[in-house]
Design a protein around this nucleic acid. Structure first.
Lengths: 201, 201
DNA sequence: GTCTATACAGGGATAGAC
DNA sequence: GTCTATCCCTGTATAGAC
């Protein structure tokens, strides 16, 4: 219960992570220094090592917890219905989740190169797990004849790239609101897989 | 005609650029050191400064010449025909060009953050010029009623992201050949803009 | 044109006082 | 838990010999 004066580990920890995420998103992992992060948090550089054993682990933890959150969140989306409904649910979830976490998403996509081999394997595995959810929807839709997709792997990559790309241009308070974006992307996704014209192919 | 022994400026220059492009694509600009580039080329670090005033300019030149090439190449693609044919020509060109230059594309997309403000403005302007070619096709198609696109700006970003995303997963000699990829992406692009079902929207 | 040698700044990480 | 101080390394870039 008793805690020493100046003890803020439960506050400073998250602040370190938040500052790191933000700086890395803007400048890239290799370009960001521990001293910069410390300055942003308002502590000395040495103090950061109370919260992370080293810089690499700090990056890994950011990416890992982001992917954990993503997989946790998507697990409560109902993807078991008819393929078209499942696809819509997936697309809308993906957009909403990614719009809420532009920085974390950006880091998770851009900094894969800077993970050690072992750490990369962990994140890559999680990413694959997520992508497989989409691919299975496409497979189900193709099997039941409601989607016209030649190659479900390629289509999965194409759709993920399209949906995730919005984080590179979306800015809060811009011309389009979140609902508009979800509607318009969903419209393009739906058409791209031939969900309304499967029999014509 | 006479040339000093050990003079290789016309050979070493391109080799410096090539090594830099490859290393930056793999590890990121900030993570790559001048010593690494020099080692790859087989010269001493100091010798690199015969070919570039500094590291930033080296990056800028890589990105600038890539964008120059892109704009030059696309200028010989006929985009003036009917919107659907123009869109197909654009999509196939984009894929072929990007598959041929995976490293350069990767650098051009990932390292924007590491350009100085002035250099960024130049590249961004070129990128916008390129994207506008696609947007104008979408506008023409919508105006003539052959495309069902709600927002041409958003659709432009979505299609560019989808098409460019292939550089993140495509590997030479993989399961799919270039023609397959072009065909399948074009099929998705065509459907995404409602090119075969515009009247149903 | 390339080399060796080096200046100088800044990096990550640690030790030990408080 | 945080600080100051510092170690040691590596970065970019330059100078001057060959």
């Amino acid at each position: 219960m008793a805690r020493k004066t100046g003890s803020h580990s439960d506050i400073t920890g998250p602040r370190v992570r938040s500052a790191a995420r933000s700086l890395i998103a803007r400048h890239g992992f290799a370009a960001v220094t521990m001293r910069q992060i410390a300055r942003e948090v308002g502590v000395q550089a040495g103090a950061l090592y109370l919260y992370t054993p080293d810089k690499q682990t700090l990056l890994f933890d950011l990416m890992k917890s982001h992917m954990d959150e993503l997989l946790e969140a998507v697990s409560s989306v109902d993807l078991s219905g008819p393929p078209e409904r499942a696809l819509e649910a997936f697309a809308r979830f993906h957009i909403a989740f990614h719009l809420d976490r532009a920085e974390a998403v950006f880091v998770a996509y851009m900094e894969l190169r800077n993970l050690t081999e072992d750490n990369f394997a962990v994140i890559e595995d999680q990413r694959k797990t997520y992508e497989n959810l989409l691919e299975r929807i496409l497979q189900r839709g193709r099997a039941s004849g409601v989607f016209a997709v030649h190659d479900t792997k390629l289509a999965t990559m194409a759709l993920i790239a399209m949906l995730t790309g919005l984080t590179t241009w979306y800015r809060e308070g811009g011309r389009l609101d979140r609902g508009d974006i979800q509607d318009m992307y969903w419209d393009m996704v739906r058409k791209a897989v031939g969900a309304d014209a499967a029999l014509s192919a």
